[in-house]
């Protein structure tokens, strides 16, 4: 399903493309350029982003033993939003090592938030998990208030640019962003498979995990920092795409069970395919207008969230 989504999605859009259009290689025809320079990079970026968010959601749900945990909940998204808002407010428009100012600034905002959070949790090592979760919620509100201050002080144009960014979006030209996000996906996958047994143990509770031989505090810190790093970069490239990290692991768990080595593989393929399909819908359903992909994922995610809360 995942491979089919990646293969078929670039042909679908405001202008349907045929194989002949695409194979008119040389980039001379409009169809080939749309395919190779716009749609394929976009589909690949969506796939890497969806797979990374799916894996990160899976890890967060095990890390906090909380079925409603998702990778952007601990201030990462609002930290990134603050970074983006600051960049817009300052009018920065430069490129740094191939990263746009907006992407670099939102990554710095997200990761600064993560490090501050880890320091706060480290002050209470006896109840690090709970402190991390609650401090994360507090950081979320704090950074959201900073974003609102910048929005209030900025121009209408700045406010609209920030609003547009917070809705998430995968508009790219060329393969640059997808190639930069690929190592992030590889890191998330490596961490997931290497820690699959630890994640299984974490689901059984800290007491059981330690008694089976897990270095709990170290494993938690490594997982939290690695996941947050991956999420921060995903958010920097695609904006805070909501609900993917929450929905994907739950749907996969219904199919493959709770064992994390299976769940990680399922989350990669389903997460990637899900965001590719949502992005294809976002640029096709209201064509020629495009909806931000975050709207589509939230539109599907909110009813799912309710179902999760209310199911027996």
């Amino acid at each position: 399903m995942s491979a089919a989504a990646v293969v078929i999605a670039p042909f679908v859009g405001a202008r349907a493309l045929s194989l002949a259009d695409v194979l008119a290689w040389g980039g001379k025809t409009g169809g080939a350029r749309i395919f190779w320079e716009l749609r394929l990079p976009r589909v690949l970026l969506a796939w890497f982003c969806g797979a990374t968010l799916g894996l990160c959601g899976m890890i967060f749900q095990a890390l906090f033993r909380n079925p409603l945990a998702e990778p952007t909940m601990l201030g990462v998204a609002s930290g990134a939003s603050f970074g983006a808002a600051f960049c817009i407010y300052m009018g920065w428009n430069v490129s740094l090592f191939g990263f746009s100012a907006m992407a670099a600034s939102s990554f710095v905002g997200a990761f600064a938030c993560v490090l501050a959070l880890q320091c706060a949790a480290g002050l209470r090592p006896d109840r690090e998990g709970a402190t991390l979760l609650l401090a994360g919620v507090a950081f979320n509100f704090f950074f959201s208030s900073l974003v609102m201050i910048l929005q209030y002080m900025g121009t209408y144009n700045d406010s609209f640019r920030l609003l547009r960014w917070t809705l998430g979006g995968i508009q790219v030209i060329g393969l640059g962003e997808a190639l930069r996000l690929a190592p992030v996906f590889v890191l998330a996958a490596a961490v997931s498979f290497a820690s699959a047994r630890e994640l299984d143990l974490l689901l059984c509770g800290p007491e059981m995990a330690v008694a089976r031989g897990m270095e709990l505090v170290r494993a938690r810190r490594v997982l939290f920092l690695a996941v947050s790093f991956c999420v921060a970069l995903s958010v920097a490239f695609c904006g805070p795409v909501a609900f993917v990290g929450l929905m994907v692991p739950h749907l996969c768990r219904l199919v493959v069970g709770s064992l994390h080595r299976n769940l990680a593989a399922a989350s990669i393929f389903f997460g990637g395919a899900f965001l590719v399909l949502c992005d294809t819908a976002s640029r096709t359903l209201w064509s020629p207008m495009e909806l931000p992909v975050g709207i589509i994922t939230s539109f599907l995610g909110a009813p799912f969230f309710l179902w999760l809360l209310l199911r027996k």
């Binding site: 509770g205 059981m208 709770s258």
Partner: peptide
């Protein structure tokens, strides 16, 4: 066993 769920 607490609230362990999801494993055979």
């Amino acid at each position: 066993a607490g609230d362990i769920a999801g494993f055979t």
